[in-house]
């Protein structure tokens, strides 16, 4: 499988961008400066993330998930 890699093994943190309000709460608590937030776009900078999960806890609206299987490079979403 083609998993995204964090600073510490497989990346286990996943942001669901379609549900994100882009408030920046997760960016504020991230000790590694591993989240990039533009106007209405957000992503994890894989090689900085340590899977510490602080962003998961801090998200006010449950949009960041801890995915213990690992995050795939191309998420298997089926919009078609």
């Amino acid at each position: 499988m083609n998993y995204r890699m964090s600073k510490k093994g497989k990346l286990l943190i996943e942001i669901l961008p379609d549900k994100c309000d882009f408030c920046g709460c997760c960016v504020g608590v991230c000790p590694e400066d591993a989240i990039e937030l533009k106007e209405v776009a957000i992503e994890i900078i894989d090689d900085r993330c340590t899977n510490c999960s602080k962003c998961v806890w801090a998200c006010p609206i449950d949009v960041i998930k801890f995915n213990k299987e690992g995050v795939l490079k191309s998420p298997a979403t089926s919009y078609i």
Binding site: G24, C25, V27, G28, V29, D33, L37, W57, A58, P60
Partner: peptide, 26 residues
């Protein structure tokens, strides 16, 4: 730049908020 406070980090300042001091609001 608000709660994100990334600009300060790039200048070497420790700006991230400890999880226990962050209030998650909705």
């Amino acid at each position: 730049d608000g709660v994100e406070s990334r600009v300060g980090r790039w200048a070497g300042l420790e700006t991230h908020t400890h999880i226990k001091n962050m209030e998650s609001c909705v």
